[in-house]
Design a protein around this nucleic acid. Sequence first.
DNA 1: CTGTTAGCGCGTTCAC
DNA 2: GTGAACGCGCTAACAG
Lengths: 340, 340
Amino acid sequence: MSATPSSEQTNTRATLKQVAQLADVSIATASKALNDRVHVRASTRQRVLDAAAQLRFSPNEQARSLSMGQTGTVGLITGDLEGRFSLPILMGAEDAFGTGRMSVFLCDARGDSIREQYHLDALLRRNVDGIIVVGALTNARKPIGRDLPVPVVYAYAPSEDPNDVSVVPNDVAAGADAVRYLLDQGRTRIAHISGVSNYTAAIERSQGVTAALQERGLTLLDDMTHFGSWSEQWGRSATERLIERHPDLDGIVCGNDQISRGALDALQRAGWNVPSRVALLGFDNWEVLTTGSRPQLSSVDLNFELVGREAASLLFGMMSGTVEPGIRRIDSRIVTRESA
Amino acid sequence: MSATPSSEQTNTRATLKQVAQLADVSIATASKALNDRVHVRASTRQRVLDAAAQLRFSPNEQARSLSMGQTGTVGLITGDLEGRFSLPILMGAEDAFGTGRMSVFLCDARGDSIREQYHLDALLRRNVDGIIVVGALTNARKPIGRDLPVPVVYAYAPSEDPNDVSVVPNDVAAGADAVRYLLDQGRTRIAHISGVSNYTAAIERSQGVTAALQERGLTLLDDMTHFGSWSEQWGRSATERLIERHPDLDGIVCGNDQISRGALDALQRAGWNVPSRVALLGFDNWEVLTTGSRPQLSSVDLNFELVGREAASLLFGMMSGTVEPGIRRIDSRIVTRESA
DNA sequence: CTGTTAGCGCGTTCAC
DNA sequence: GTGAACGCGCTAACAG
């Protein structure tokens, strides 16, 4: 068959009209039969179904949505190049929608607000039924538009406007959980090496960490969170300093898994065993980092898939009714490996 | 304004009809004016443009594509959960299409061929203008369908059918380049620790490695490629064995960056300096892995963005003409850091 | 130059 | 039960 030396496309798709002709009924009847509407005789319905099957008919969504007013598509606008956060969220959303029932336009704005507007316009022209905006950081962001004709849910980075609907990880609780986990292991001389100091995620986790310590009348080593960057290098250098100053150090809460890797490296070079002397607990549960090291790293998983799933079902709710505005916070879970 | 306690959506979008009424012309004239067609007086055109601006009109793509026969959308079906390969490809494709001109449906089939068919059907119902299929491995895969009504390009994993159009990294050349790079540094006692033995990527890189050594009358240490898994752990254990057997080892080509990290760890524990005693070169150039270690890892970048860009422009070509079938191979580039 | 007419493919009244 | 007729929003062919 397709033995043409160069690729070409001539196949065309069957139309409802053709199905109707083949079944010898009107277009209207064919439509009713296929959509399982009432007022159509069983035998007629069967003729139509057979004809449709024979022609491998499937309805043209363009035309269908033009008359129905719903497209069955949603837009996902992300600013997160790496996809570290937006892909799990996308997958969660796909799950919530049900495979194939709703199609997702993925738009990468690359942190550029002009490109973001461009994508937004394209999505509106295409009449998406809703939009999910995924931020690159957890910092609150400006709303993507005012009085849009479709519902919008903000995921990962909440909207600054309290009248919008947002879903984010619960960073405060995650920080507190991390500390309690270490405390329950009997660790009491705990340090916190975090990431960039103006990231909401870093700040809120730090608040949770501090609060959980206070609950038990404890404080952080150095009485502060050490902010720096999200890198292994920072984890290494910060840990080296801790090693010098605090021979009694017995646990570190690391701002992410990269910092955790750096800390592990520094501890091992100093001959401090992990986890027997110092326990290590990071955030993000990025498998390529956590399962490669020896010992493997325990980590707080922020459940991005759940964030996506919740965002999708909220969007669903807004499409067919009304939803309370505000920020939803999704709980995290600790994945135990060998470092803590 | 939007001070309602719960989110709702009532805004509706302006239609061409409304623009025409406001400008006091017929719908057809309005259409011509907005689409910059001929046969419309300058003053009339301006009236229409003003009206459109005032109503913030933008055309309904559903209706437009229904009459034009083109939707301006493409589908990207991927099986690669992590997005390690498909996201750069997606970004390359977006670039090639031009932001906003073409919208991309992202479908994650998760390696499940049933889900893949489901997504394919949905894309066809939505009348996408073309489809890019991104594999999870570089192994050749079965065509996604026969005689589809739209052009298809396979990226990363080529189609088994030589009449299809595929774009993949050039793994043989990448392997050869890696070895030549080490040879040019004066390394001659080179080992190759690769990944899973039935991955085309692993096999082809190995072929390139062997061939490039042969060019200079050399062979691999142990006279073979060491296959295993794509993990740090495998890199570690394989390297430990090499250290025992080959005190003259001076370079390792690692199947990916994770193996490279593992090798680095083993070498450093043995007190073998990198790069002065042993040079290390991996594949993939996954920054989170390569820039976190000390020394930072040099790596062969397989240029996934270029793969995506090429796939997109081939798709473009097929949409508006004809394209030679077959497999295109995209060249890699070596990113030099500190390990080689 | 402009307006009228006729589709694109489908869902949905409303007569018959 | 069935089918003709209309509309979704827009573009294209033809008259004026």
